[in-house]
Amino acid sequence: MSEKPLHRFEQPISVPGRRLLHGIPLGFVRKKAAGGGGRSLNQELPLIPFIDFLLCIVLFLLASFSATGEMPIDQNVKLPNAENVLDMVEAPMVAITGTQILVDGVPAGSTRAIEEANRLQRIDELFNILKNKRELWRQINPGKEFPGVAVLQVDRRVPALVVKSVFQTAAFAGYPNISFMVGRMGGEG
């Protein structure tokens, strides 16, 4: 026999192969009985590494999951950005917009009133709310030292007089450690 395979139209005699059981008329029976040496079309998918991969993603996302969500920012507050910053902490949030002062979303004074008075002053409403929050914290955490931390969300255009008044009021209410909320320089402000 020639080593070179021959084209079937040029060669009247075909290459000998298996003949046994090839005469069965039913196709699927013939296939089963005669075999044929064809590769099985069934494939095993490697599911275990895929599940391991998914589990790793789930664990990572669960670890970085925050149930409280994004820190709420008042719509009227446009924060400045800074470079040398720290990560956020959980603390009472005092928002200072162009018109009003809010503690965790509750109105606690007017910015306009301070600007019109044009002098440093204690904001009584803010003082009472912060003092109540401090008392509540002490009742919930008896025997622990009160951290005295509050976060100020201040609009970038608010004058320093208003910030000083809020700062002073917070210090008198037992919150001398103030953090200013800012955006990270280079990130979205």
Binding site: E70, S179, F180, G183, R184
Partner: peptide, 16 residues
């Protein structure tokens, strides 16, 4: 629901 926060803080003590 992931939160990719850009918010940060700057510390300052009060002198009153």
């Amino acid at each position: 629901t992931a939160v990719w926060s850009q918010m940060a803080r700057i510390n300052a003590d009060a002198r009153v």
